[in-house]
Design a protein around this nucleic acid. Structure first.
Lengths: 220, 220
DNA sequence: CAATCAAGTCACCAAACGGTGACGCGCCCT
DNA sequence: AGGGCGCGTCACCGTTTGGTGACTTGATTG
């Protein structure tokens, strides 16, 4: 008596009072899908990132994702395309009125800028977490795009400043970037990192001070 | 002759050529499950870490996981129990014949030890990646256990050495640990980190040198 | 008006997932 | 001998997943 189809039929009619007709606008739908994908990835993480979930959030049929983006892969690629502009969108190019006289000045400033930019971009945070958790082709593309953009940024900001002789700038900077990324990820996930609380702004001040000290220690 | 009224009996007999009878040994099965879980997590990562996969690898029925460990949560907890001994199992307590005169000596040595230990422990690597990717209760327990063990280790190794005044040791060390962890994770996932290749042992020598320089820069 | 083609929807598929109840079997104990 | 009791297995449930074919609907053509 529960699952009686005769009873359900009128109910189904009663439900679709207003079908909320979807407009027939491909480019708008494409944008909606991309936006849904980005917000989903940013809020839920890569764990529950799938065709069904994206379609659900975009409010459209998943078939459209296959049609317009060729599946999840294409969608991820589309996300990665924006990633190249990340640094230039989120990080100010000017030096904030400061005069950067030495390479140490520069790296101190860039470190803090990078830290802050990463702190308030949940999408890129998730992507970084994704990069260190999986090794699929998708992720590798994302990683490459981000890595390249980052390197360009570093190089562009360097300007005419010359790093100190005798130190492996690439390696040292990689370690600094690694530290910042892991610090932010760790904080975002559990509110702390290796016993250092990272919740209040006071916590972050301590972290920033320590980071500055490290940068100054190696670059003078 | 037996109480088998089924007509399919001969078919079943034909299929199960050798039943490969599982021995009735609870503790052995428990160990097999735990081992399977650890190896699965280490090799495949937390993505495909589920009841079915563990049971499949352990070669037993998933029901036994529920019975013996109370589900995946209990199993993860059992994994976490071993984690407390990780540092003491994987990292030598002695100083390798070195005389550590200053806090800088100590931290340089500990950094490299931690780096190497993490580099050849895929399980803990996966757990660290898990920690920065999810925020469930499971992961939080793992994270806490590891974090506590790490802090204890640092404190124990410090001995009577006194860190330099005026620097926030906790914060600086957290950043150093973060850097090492992310470096290893990144290398393990994609073979590089922020443009720094991390595949050959020569690559790692460069990374180690840079790390030493950073530690020395901040701790003298 | 009629034909066409893209936009959007629906129904269905096989597979895998976590989870549970029930059953068979063998060992031990009285 | 017989009655538990613990170990292992199996079948099944509902749900979700990625993926595909077939359909309706609407607008713009000739």
């Amino acid at each position: 008596m529960l699952n009686d189809p005769m009873v359900l039929a009128p109910v189904a009619d009663a439900i679709r009072v207003e079908p909320e007709k979807r407009i027939r606008d491909r480019s708008a739908t494409e944008k909606a899908i991309l936006k849904a994908a980005k917000s989903l990835l940013a809020e839920e993480g890569f764990q529950n990132f799938g065709i069904n979930a994206v379609a659900r959030r975009a409010g459209c049929d998943k078939q459209l994702i296959y049609r317009y983006y060729g599946g999840l892969n294409g969608l991820v690629e589309a996300i990665g395309a924006d990633l190249g502009n990340w640094v230039k969108d989120r990080i100010p190019e000017d030096t904030g009125g400061m005069f950067l006289l030495t390479y140490g000045d520069l790296m101190e400033r860039l470190s803090l800028l990078f830290l802050e930019a990463l702190r308030d971009d949940p999408l890129v945070r998730r992507i970084v977490a994704w990069e260190v958790s999986e090794n699929t082709e998708q992720v590798r593309r994302l990683s490459e795009a981000r890595s390249k953009a980052l390197a360009n940024w570093l190089d562009r900001m360097r300007g005419s400043l010359t790093p100190p002789k005798g130190v492996d700038v690439v390696a040292v900077n990689a370690i600094l970037i690694a530290a910042i990324q892991h610090l932010v990820l760790s904080a975002s996930a559990g509110g702390q990192c290796a016993g250092l609380a990272l919740k209040t702004s006071k916590d972050w001040e301590k972290a920033a001070t320590a980071l500055k000290r490290i940068v100054r220690g190696v670059y003078g």
